[in-house]
Amino acid sequence: MLEVYFQKAKLNEVIEQLIRLLRVYAPVLKGAYHEFAQIKTASDADLGFQNTRLSPKGLFHPHLERMFEFSLAKGDPQASILREVPKDYSPSVILGIRPCDARAFQVDDVNFDTSVVKDPWWVERRKSMTLVGLACNEPCSTCFCTTVGTGPFDTNGLDAVLVDVGDGYVVRAVTERGEELVLKLGLKDLVPDEAAKKAEEQKVSAEQSLGRLFDTEAIAKRDSAELFNAGFWEEVQFACINCGTCTFLCPTCWCFDIQDEVSGEQGERVRLWDSCMFPLFTLHGSGHNPRSQKLQRVRQRFMHKLKYYQDKYHQGVACVGCGRCVTQCPVNIDIRSVAQLMSASCIC
């Protein structure tokens, strides 16, 4: 596939060109942390970030998705009929997404885009977005991507990837869509040997810095019922306060809730992020709650990510090792330690 190079001094020019071609989302510093947002000028983007506080999943699966609109007006012949809300699927690019976050979309595809069920919003947005990643030269100490089957230079979920080699960027197209974009940008400079060598060295050193913290295969092999009834959940769950921080920050958590919102005679059906940490998530209309206890909810989150997902889809775990839940959990519940308990074979 196509590989080109450009000097760092040219970065803003490249981004400006991107903005002329497509709608561009990039990491933007907002207050104390970064988030992915649409940018209007190159200077809004900040590629000097570690990672965004919230994952970019909201670009495909927004926190609040307006699905349908309806009228409740008396005498309106269209009253109570759901009309799909028109969406803007203009071709877009996410610039600077980390390989782990891009991989997360593939993890979630099995939920939103299957041979049987297709979520139209997810599918259309996936089609409209080109993912231009930024390889991680210096993964954080809380990252564990290589343990869960991806990596700081993994290009699996990406269309193209940028590698920061100090003076410039190596741009590597991964898919045809990525190649097309690189060609459109008119980037033609061949990668200098020096830069190619540096990129390779950085890949090796980044991957080496991570190591393997637990064995996902071992979790796959364990008996579900045995894991479900394991004694360690009691200890794992104690500190949990059942907030939704871990699930809302997680790039792979896809659960949602649907609400009808009404204002006067107009209404809309919206889809909102929901969290398995909340008791309401599983509350039945009858009043019965199959996961009324904190232990059950905490166990569900880890079992879903690390065990059920593996058993059901046979394509690894539903965790990409971004470490957001590790750094932001208010009570320091660490998925790495929990996974070690679940695999019962710490190889660190």
């Binding site: 927004p62 919102e261 809309e268």
Partner: peptide, 8 residues
């Protein structure tokens, strides 16, 4: 005052 969402 609660108004309906206007974002996508």
């Amino acid at each position: 005052i609660k108004k309906l969402a206007e974002v996508a």
